[in-house]
Design a protein around this nucleic acid. Structure first.
Lengths: 245, 245
DNA sequence: ATAGAAAAGTGAACGTGTTCGAAAAATAAT
DNA sequence: ATTATTTTTCGAACACGTTCACTTTTCTAT
């Protein structure tokens, strides 16, 4: 126990951060080995060699651990999409989704728990809630670049709208995939193929006035939920009161 | 305490059934008054004037109580759709969805819990699982009659496909609605209006070969999840293997 | 070096959904 | 009537996620 005197030139890795990492590693390890539900918080603490209470110093809840996992997976998606060749939007989309689901595959149960909890409770891990906004913005950005990096990328303000729709589709696809009990998730695979074909077929007509108008309309409707930087509900009980009586 | 000797001519209402009803009534009452999460199983038992363990004799889990609630609401939807005037499919759909969401409104939190749990765990209340198949088939049937009862109803085997898509849309809409935090669920209202307009606009082209083909394709993909009488996963690993390499 | 403050860490305890073995009441068989 | 059997009921106990008052360690400033 002599040195460990790293030069504090730039990054200062505090002890707590190392502990947090250790706990997270233990958690993900146990999730993978025993499944999300079977992996107890006490198990995780034991595996990390710390007390039960300490885990809660670094993670507000068990689900938040899965959220940390999802953040990692999202970062991988980010890289993968950045490295995608500049093919058609349809091809890029299909490849990205396939890769993403393959990445998510080992963590189905954990992610289901995350989505399930985030769907219901008013927790900090709410999928579309304020606590996950930064992450959501990042993933949405990935789909923005997936779109703009395509060889047949549209231009103008349609980009924002299509990004919103792409992101909403992504979340829907993940939901479908989570429920898909067909062997090898065959149905989800076919759904991606369907989406690819539709994107390829419909890309040319996206510029048509009627289609463009309806696309914009749908995207605008979805913006409060899936758009970039939604209004964060939860400030002072503002003007969105309503429902008296 | 002399009589209560009802003629046992036809229906034999056992004591347990009455108790079950009493517990359910207490549960729904408390869900409505205190919210789903705040209403404890112990509260419910107390309100019903019975022990904690007894509640579990009639409901395998807390969520199953919400499932019973959903069954009631589904029955109301059934009646309402049956009483719907024979307008266009677009109008009928919009009216049915609006009525349904209005009915669901007082139970948002409970339903969110039901959907959240049903999304994740492998519980008997799994939204798309085998334990809820009968209910699912019934609700799907409602959308089938919503379709066939329309003045511009399509014919042929497109009916089955469109029913599947309509039912899937319905579940998606409920999901969207559960997440919709805009005041008065404005976004959901606009989404219904959008769907109505699209249905009206696209109804004529549904017969076009390309559209019909792709509709059938999408519906077929979704059938394992949303179709009538899905194969109950869990038998011997059947013949729907496919997807090699 | 020392004192004070902040960060890191502990483990008992709480509330909750859920389970279970056994008692009590109702019903059927002798 | 008495016994056997099923149904209904109970409440203690369990396991889990979570909280909290507290201790121990580490850092910072004198």
């Amino acid at each position: 126990m002599a040195k460990t005197d790293m030069v504090p030139s730039e990054a200062k890795v505090t002890k707590g951060e190392r502990t947090r990492e250790r706990i997270l590693e233990a958690a993900l390890d146990l999730f993978a080995r025993k499944g999300y539900n079977a992996a107890t918080m006490r198990d995780i603490a034991a595996e990390a060699g710390c007390s039960l209470g300490l885990a809660y110093r670094y993670f507000a809840s068990k689900e938040e651990m899965v959220l940390a996992l999802y953040e990692r997976l999202a970062a991988e998606l980010e890289e993968e999409v950045a490295a995608l060749p500049s093919a058609s939007l349809a091809e890029r989309w299909a490849r990205a989704e396939r890769a993403e689901l393959a990445r998510l595959e080992p963590h189905r149960e954990s992610l289901a728990a995350l989505f399930g909890a985030g769907l219901s409770v008013d927790s900090p891990t709410q999928v579309l809630g304020p606590g996950t906004r930064e992450l959501r913005t990042r993933v949405r950005g990935v789909y923005g670049r997936l779109l703009t990096g395509a060889s047949d990328a549209p231009r103008g303000k349609a980009v924002e709208h299509l990004t919103t729709l792409l992101y909403a589709s992504h979340l829907s696809l993940v939901l479908f995939w989570l429920q898909d009990r067909t062997p090898d998730q065959k149905a989800t695979g076919e759904l991606i193929a369907f989406g690819r074909d539709m994107l390829a077929r419909l890309r040319p007509v996206l510029g048509l006035p009627f289609v463009a108008r309806q696309t914009a309309r749908l995207a605008t409707i979805m913006t409060p939920l899936f758009g970039a930087g939604e209004a964060d509900e939860g400030g002072s009980d503002g003007q969105c009161s309503g429902s008296r009586g």
